[in-house]
Amino acid sequence: MPLNAEHEIHRRRRSRNVGLGIVLVAFVALVFGLTVVKVQQGDMMEAFDHQPRVSVLPSEQPEPAR
């Protein structure tokens, strides 16, 4: 009997590995899709990125009087 004979246990293990692989790929697709939708909807995407945040800085030019 060759050493690389496949035991029933290997089939079970493969089903687990393939399943987890599919789950991970699906999760990546899900997060990517969510990102696209959220950006398209114009949600607040501004996060802390070590830069002064444009939206909280006082505007440089005061609004012209109407």
């Binding site: 009997m1 035991h7 246990i9 079970r12 293990r13 089903s15 687990r16 399943g19 987890l20």
Partner: peptide, 20 residues
């Protein structure tokens, strides 16, 4: 044929067991 099962007793679950 001699079949020595070293995995006896350690569960080797399938993916569908986790789904269940």
């Amino acid at each position: 044929m001699i079949d020595i099962n070293a995995y006896e007793g350690t569960p080797e679950a399938e993916f569908r067991d986790f789904v269940a």
